[in-house]
Amino acid sequence: MTIRHHVSDELLLDYATGALSEGWRIAVATHLALCPQGRRRLSLMEMAGGVLVREHPPEPLRSNDDEAWISIKKRLGVSEMQPAVLQADDLAVRGGAVVLPEPLRSYVGGDLESVKWRPLGRGAYHMPIELEDESTKVRLLRIPAGKPVPEHGHRGRELTLVLSGSFHDGEALFARGDLEEADETLQHQPVATEGEDCICLAVTDAPLKFRSWLLRAIQPILGI
């Protein structure tokens, strides 16, 4: 699997600094789970953050280190060690049949079979994902093979991460792991590729602007 559409530097920087809010972060973290190149770019940004901190060191506060060490030592016994990162071989043995990577899978409550799809009309389905942070809307979308997502524009930002199947948006093909970033300037009509339904994670921070008056009329009912 080769990722063709990567997370942008500005979004990845927001991820690295922790400024990205929960909804966006689910999409970027899940993309990164599928994209070693993105994780290398992330580790460079984290290194840059470390360099900056060391270049502009705050005045070190050394006053009560001994006391702190005693209280930390007490906590070490009770806190479990986390296992080392698995090697590729170990993972291959466990098989690659899981469709939804972490952290998304935990938000959904399991892999694809636990998704409770709700009809959107025209053969499309969605499952909204509830978050504590309500500044974004997060949902899984299932677009039937060969069918378009209704043409829409954006009032804010939209992130779409492909999890299964693929879609075309104009000339560009988006497949598993690919991330599409859209903003106010983009009016687009993604079309699912023939042969397989396309399952995506979609994150938005404002309602979509549909071209069709009919869709606009029923939009509040669908909650998209």
Binding site: L34, Q87, A88, A97, E102, R105
Partner: peptide, 12 residues
């Protein structure tokens, strides 16, 4: 939320 290197779906 963060990715999990021990997740079977994680691409190493």
């Amino acid at each position: 939320p963060d990715f999990d290197p021990n997740d079977p779906a994680f691409v190493p």
